[in-house]
C-alpha cells in the first residue's frame, strides 16, 4: 500500500468520525450540558462549552485514529515494510508549517471568541472585582445607588436588582438593599431581571457558586467582588461554596429560587416585614464588613469613612509621632 492511499484512509476515517461525533454532540449532548438556560450567561456558557467541544472532538479523534492506525498497521510484525528513515522521517517542512499554522489559528480563534463571549456577556457571570469593567446597562448605577441607600426595585420597572452575598464559615447569607437592607439565608430572585451580586466574605476566602445561574465569584474578606446575571427562567438552583474554606467546606451549600416578578415582590415585602426587627440591628449596607473586637458585624473598620480607625489606640504609644 502506498503512502497516499494510507493517508487518504486515515483522513477519510477522521472526517467521518469527526462529523458524526460533532453532530451527536451538538444535537444529543449539547442541549443537556450544564449550566442550562436559567440565565443568559448560563445559556452562553453552555453555548461556549459546546463550541469548544465540537472544536476539540476532531482534534481528539485525529490523535486517537492516528494512534490506533499506528498500533495496528505500523507495527513490528511480518509483512510490514521497513520503517521510514532518512531525511523524510526527520522533518517535513510542509507538515511542520501546516501544523503550526493550524494550531495557532485554532488557538487564537478560540481566544478571540472567548474574549468576545466574555465581554458580550458582561463577564459571563464571573466575579469582576470591586470595579467591574463589563457591566449590563444600568447595573453599575443601581449598585452605586444601593450603597447610598437608594436602591429600589419594582416588578413593573426594568431596574437591576442588587443582592449582596455574604459568605462566612460556613454559610451564605444575602442582603437586599432594595428591601430595607434585609438579610436572609435563602437566595430568591425575580425572573427576567438583571441581578447584581456583591460578593464578600467575613472571614476566609469562599466562592459563591450559583450553579444553574452560571455565577461564580470568590468571596474575599474585605473585598467586594461583583458578578452579574440576567435571569431567564423560574426554578430552583443550587448554591455551593467552591473554594476550600475550612473543615465544613463540603457542607457549605444551600439552594435558591427564581420566582416570577410578582411572586418575588410578594416574598420580598413579606420577608422585609418579618425581618424588620433583626434588620434594625444590622450595620448599614456596605460593600464589605470587617468584624471587630466586639464580634461579627458589631462595628466597622473603615471602608470609606464609617468609623475612624486609630492604630494608636490599638498599638499604643510606641508609634513615633508623625
Amino acid at each position: 500500500m502506498n503512502n497516499g492511499s494510507e493517508m487518504r484512509r486515515i483522513v477519510t476515517a477522521w472526517v467521518i468520525v469527526s462529523v458524526i461525533g460533532d453532530l451527536l454532540w451538538w444535537f444529543l449532548v449539547g442541549p443537556h450540558v450544564p449550566p442550562g438556560n436559567m440565565t443568559t450567561s448560563a445559556h452562553w456558557n453552555q453555548f461556549d462549552f459546546n463550541i469548544l467541544a465540537i472544536t476539540a472532538l476532531p482534534v481528539v479523534f485525529m490523535v486517537w485514529i492516528w494512534l490506533g492506525y499506528a498500533v495496528v498497521k505500523w507495527r513490528d510484525k511480518p509483512g510490514v515494510p521497513e520503517p521510514l528513515g532518512g531525511e523524510a522521517a526527520k522533518a517535513s517542512r510542509g507538515v511542520q508549517v501546516g501544523w503550526i499554522t493550524i494550531t495557532s489559528t485554532v488557538v487564537i480563534a478560540a481566544a478571540i471568541y472567548g474574549t468576545v463571549a466574555l465581554i458580550g456577556d458582561h463577564g459571563s457571570g464571573g466575579g469582576e472585582g470591586p470595579n467591574p469593567v463589563w457591566a449590563p446597562p444600568g447595573a453599575i448605577a443601581a449598585n452605586t445607588a444601593a450603597l447610598a441607600g437608594k436602591a429600589t426595585w419594582s416588578p413593573t420597572g426594568n431596574q437591576p436588582l442588587v443582592v449582596q452575598v455574604i459568605a462566612q464559615q460556613w454559610k451564605f447569607t444575602y442582603r437586599y438593599p432594595a428591601f430595607g437592607g434585609m438579610e436572609t439565608d435563602r437566595l430568591v430572585l425575580p425572573v427576567k431581571t438583571v441581578v447584581v451580586f456583591d460578593v464578600t466574605s467575613l472571614d476566609v476566602i469562599h466562592d459563591f457558586w450559583a450553579y444553574q445561574l452560571s455565577v461564580k465569584a470568590d468571596a474575599n474578606p474585605g473585598v467586594n467582588n461583583v458578578a452579574f446575571a440576567n435571569t431567564q427562567q423560574t426554578g430552583q438552583f443550587m448554591v455551593r461554596c467552591d473554594e476550600l474554606c475550612g473543615i465544613w467546606h463540603g457542607a457549605m451549600y444551600n439552594s435558591g429560587r427564581v420566582l416570577s416578578k410578582t411572586a418575588f415582590m410578594a416574598w420580598a415585602t413579606k420577608t422585609e416585614a418579618q425581618n424588620a426587627q433583626n434588620t434594625a440591628f444590622l450595620p448599614p449596607f456596605a460593600w464589605t464588613y470587617t468584624p471587630d473586637a466586639n464580634g461579627a458585624s458589631g462595628g466597622l473598620y473603615p471602608d470609606g469613612n464609617v468609623t475612624p480607625y486609630s492604630p494608636y489606640d490599638v498599638y499604643g504609644a510606641k508609634q513615633p509621632a508623625s
Partner: peptide, 12 residues
C-alpha cells in the same frame, strides 16, 4: 493599601 494600613504615619 488595604484598610488604609500600608503604612502608619511617620512609620520608618
Amino acid at each position: 493599601n488595604n484598610s488604609n494600613l500600608w503604612r502608619l504615619p511617620g512609620q520608618l
